[in-house]
Design a protein around this nucleic acid. Structure first.
Length: 880
RNA sequence: GCUUGGGUGGCGGAAUAGGUAGACGCACAGGACUUAAAAUCCUGUAUUCUUCGGAGUGUGCGGGUUCGAUUCCCGCCCCAAGCACCA
């Protein structure tokens, strides 16, 4: 029997228990059913949930419920991205084992997730730090090693002194460590790489398969990240030297305008010729290098700087001699580390030439000015002309367009052996070596006679030592564990040493969701047959901070898996929803600027009679400043989901998170709104309490019996709502369906019929409305929906166990008996008339003209024109 | 600077194959019930004027197209996020 009042905790405890007992959300591979894979980005087990998680999982859970009600076999799993630095740092700081720390955190967070009542199939849980999972990180590594996709090379890497680790280019973007925000430096080290650049073109080209389901901003960032550009290499000979300098250019058509060759300070030409350079030049080069290693303040643009080396290069097209400069604006990492400077047609070169007084010669002209440029020696340019145009001052090429010349000049260069067309990328190979303990060991052994040897598959996993190994400085912690390091060569059996670097944690998240399909498999990462049913992911949900790293790596990994024959598609994720951040309100003291008040409830908010915010004061009456910031523990503006669930219940909390803003928008947390969703749940509860016995005792079918006008109106609202919510959920809108549910609840409330006196048809209409409402409530407030459904149908097993389905929309019932047609005079609303929904234009026109208010406006005026839009409006155009 | 989003009441947000702007919720105000409070219920709430019937103004700003523009076009302003010497 249901309680008269809604007790969230009681209801939620009950259904969380029942779901577990009944294995409600456990799903199996079943080819007879259509599948749906709903996936949220897996959490790092920090130990506590934050509101970003709650939002992420509420969205995913709503979708999973919706798809279940629509008859899909829904795979909705969760796992743990449990390798990585926080565990290691916590271990160092507190002297605990990172494994224990991680496992404890998982236990804590799992109970928080369960309190939210999320509909996961918990049997499929995975955790990256457990050997049964990372065994297959290693398996994949070996496969890639065999295929030449994993390789080791000595390289300058980004190094963070504070974190004592290497960082990928992405993680050290802008010379700043992504984790600790301190400046990074460079260090020469032997590192393992994955050849993601082999897949650069596919990563770009396959985007067309997913562009319908991914936000453009994400694809754009990936495109920029890969940074493919089509151009050419050109070699410049050096006067009095056998050395040549190769440059990359996308504008070979501008080559007659070259005024200098400019190289990066780190370019090998400098190293090779350092003995011939003056001390002035060498010290300038050192200065440039030094400036680069300093912390880069991104707000300030670095001024261009450089020096003439005194060497001369020869332009292979014109034969002209140009000076060779070293400058700080040329990047060693991109292209060849050397550029041809064409100030007339490149903004950077223009700025540089202006500063150092180098000649500027225009060789591309706007088509209509080409003749003028031919006859005149030079036109003063105030800016670089970077558009395509017509060639001038370019010998035999004069008069050709840039587009034509680009192709022909590259061919010419190739024919004469000093160049060729080329494509360059910003994307670098992915360095996966980390000098850390808490990661998946790279399964390679170094043998004195055999060199680097792959570990055998049967020896996987290469397990981490049980105890935390003490931190070394600058070397891998595992170096200090002799039992781990010392092994035998898998090839010759002689004593050998293990690789002690571990893998970047982004490796773990590349393929974790495939593991959900088949997480008990000990032979393979997953069975290709089972994965073929569940994957690709139908809907992925997560923050857009993963737009480049995780989402590019996992797309790459999928393509590798495809080439290994594990999957038969190119793209792992059909649709991606990038949810907005949850931000908190923070209050500052006006006097000191310090953050002093955290919980919004501990401040006094002053408003005027209309509710407009006048100011915020502390409990003791001092004025406070207000700001919106990313929620975090340290800022004290975070909301503890546990606390929220205790006060309002999981259902009201989850529902509010979905209702408060569209999923992609930033959500400024404001607690007062939750009470609205709680009130809504209580109201539905009251409906069911009030009507359950009437519905139960008189639930006979209604046949030809006439429905009252009000009952027809309610049924209309019910069916309109069904259609609306179905469409919204299908297009991943979660805020508007909640509003629609509230509207339906308002309609039920306005249906003023009492159970004792209700006609059979009224009970039928009420039952239809309430039952539909409850079924459509399930994605948002599953516990409450389950309980109400059980009470209503008198079956304690709830919606899914009773085969509950999303209600069926009936277009006939949704149609109105009569509709209100606005009537405009000269485009301004003046009156409304009531008409049959099917009324034709003539009828509507006549109705409008006969309307009293309309006649007041048309009286004595000439009617110029009447526009009738069927079912929508009538507009009468009049003239005085 | 470039790119991508976005500017609608006191607040979060609805509504665009061009057709009643402000759904739904919050907040606020008044009322009913109550000894009182909470809960619940009723009413109001863009804005100005009003003879209380209505009338004018209003979706960042300025133009345009149209019977009609939050929606389409042109030119601006502002905000947010991302990228940033990629040759």
């Amino acid at each position: 029997m249901m309680d008269e009042k809604y007790f969230a905790k009681k209801t939620e405890d009950k259904w969380q228990r029942l779901w577990e007992e009944n294995k409600t959300f456990e799903v199996e591979f079943d080819e007879t059913k259509p599948k749906f894979f709903a996936l949220e980005m897996l959490p790092y087990p920090s130990g506590f949930l934050h509101m970003g998680h709650v939002r992420n999982y509420s969205i995913g859970d709503a979708l999973a419920w919706y798809k279940r009600l629509k008859g899909f076999n829904v795979l909705h799993p969760i796992g743990w991205d449990s390798f990585g630095q926080p565990a290691e740092q916590a271990a160092i700081k507190r002297g605990v084992n990172p494994r224990d720390w991680t496992e404890d955190n998982i236990v804590a967070m799992k109970s928080q997730l369960k309190k939210l009542g999320l509909s996961y199939d918990w049997r499929r849980e995975m955790a990256a730090h457990r050997p049964d999972y990372y065994k297959f990180d290693q398996w994949f590594f070996l496969k890639m090693y065999e295929k030449g996709l994993a390789y080791k090379k000595a390289t300058q890497v980004n190094w963070c002194e504070t974190c004592q680790t290497t960082l990928s280019n992405e993680q050290a973007s802008g010379g700043i460590c992504w984790r600790c925000s301190n400046p990074t430096t460079k260090k020469e080290i032997e590192q393992w790489f994955l050849r993601i650049t082999d897949y650069a073109d596919q990563l770009l080209d396959d985007m067309q398969e997913i562009e319908a389901g991914w936000a453009e901003k994400v694809l754009k960032r990936q495109r920029d990240w890969i940074g493919r550009s089509n151009g050419a290499f050109v070699e410049f000979k050096i006067q009095d030297s056998t050395f040549k300098i190769k440059v990359f250019t996308t504008r070979i058509d501008t080559i007659y305008g070259v005024n200098a060759i400019v190289v990066a300070a780190e370019h090998p030409f400098i190293e090779a010729n350092s003995d011939k350079l003056s001390s002035e030049v060498l010290s300038k080069i050192d200065e440039i290098k030094f400036e680069k290693t300093k912390a880069v303040d991104r707000e300030v643009e670095i001024e261009k700087d450089g020096i003439d080396t005194g060497f001369k290069a020869v332009n292979p097209f014109s034969g002209e001699e140009v000076p060779i400069w070293v400058a700080n604006y040329v990047l060693i990492e991109y292209g060849t580390g050397a550029v041809m400077s064409v100030p007339a047609h490149d903004e950077r070169d223009f700025e540089f030439a202006k500063k150092f007084g180098l000649p500027i010669r225009q060789v591309i002209s706007e088509p209509n000015l080409a003749h003028e440029h031919h006859t005149m020696q030079a036109l003063a340019l105030s800016d670089a002309f970077t558009d395509y145009g017509v060639m001038v001052h370019s010998d035999d090429w004069n008069g050709k367009t840039s587009e034509v010349a680009k192709v022909e000049m590259a061919e010419y260069a190739k024919k004469h052996g000093f160049g060729e067309t080329a494509i360059t990328y910003r994307l670098r190979d992915w360095g996966i070596s980390r000098q850390r303990f808490w990661g998946s060991p790279i399964p390679v052994v170094y043998c004195n006679s055999c060199g680097a040897v792959a570990e055998k598959y049967e020896n996987l996993p290469v397990e981490l030592p049980k105890d935390m190994v003490t931190e070394g400085t600058g070397t891998s912690p595992l170096d200090n564990d002799s039992t781990f390091v010392n092994t035998n060569c898998p090839k010759c059996g002689e004593p050998a040493k293990r690789e002690t670097d571990t893998m970047d944690t982004f490796v773990d998240s590349c393929w974790y969701y495939f593991r959900y399909c088949d997480n008990k498999n000990s032979e393979m990462p997953f069975s290709p047959e089972v994965a073929a049913y569940w994957t690709p992911v139908d809907q992925y949900i997560g923050g857009d901070e993963h737009a480049v790293m995780h989402l590019i790596y996992t797309r790459f990994w999928t393509k590798v898996m495809r080439d290994l024959g594990l999957v038969n598609f190119n793209e792992p994720v059909k649709r991606l929803l990038t949810q907005g951040m949850v931000v908190g309100e923070t209050f500052f003291s006006d006097e000191t600027g310090k953050r002093i008040y955290h919980a919004p409830k501990s401040v006094k908010v002053e408003r005027d009679a209309k509710g407009k915010l006048l100011g915020v004061k502390s409990a003791d009456g001092k004025p406070l400043k207000y700001a919106v910031e990313k929620m975090s523990k340290s800022k004290g503006n975070g909301i503890d989901p546990d606390e929220m669930v205790d006060i309002y219940g999981a259902d009201a909390s989850r529902m509010f998170v979905l209702f408060a803003a569209p999923a992609e928008n930033e959500l400024v947390w404001n607690e007062s709104g939750i009470e609205g969703t709680l009130r809504f749940l209580q109201r539905i509860w009251r409906f069911v309490w009030k009507w359950q016995s009437a519905i139960g005792s008189r639930q006979s079918a209604v046949g030809s019996e006439e429905f009252s006008a009000d009952a027809r109106k309610l049924r209309r609202k019910t069916h309109q709502t069904i259609q609306r919510i179905d469409e919204s959920l299908d297009s991943l809108q979660f805020n508007t369906p909640v509003a629609a549910l509230m509207e339906l609840s308002n309609a039920i409330h306005d249906f003023r019929v009492e159970p004792e006196t209700a006609a059979k048809s009224d009970v039928y209409a009420i039952r239809e409305a309430i039952e539909s409402l409850i079924l459509m409530l399930a994605p948002f407030a599953p516990h409450t929906a389950e309980d109400l459904f059980a009470s209503l149908v008198g079956n304690e097993n709830g919606i899914l166990a009773n085969g509950g389905k999303f209600p069926i929309y009936n277009a006939e019932l949704a149609k109105a008996d009569e509709i209100e047609i606005p009537v405009q005079i000269n485009g301004r609303l003046r009156s409304k008339v009531i008409a049959e929904p099917e009324a034709d234009n003539k009828t509507l026109e006549a109705l409008a003209l006969a309307d009293e208010k309309v006649m007041e406006w048309t009286n004595g005026k000439e009617i110029v024109k009447i526009i009738v839009v069927p079912k929508r409006l009538v507009n009468i155009v009049v003239k005085d």
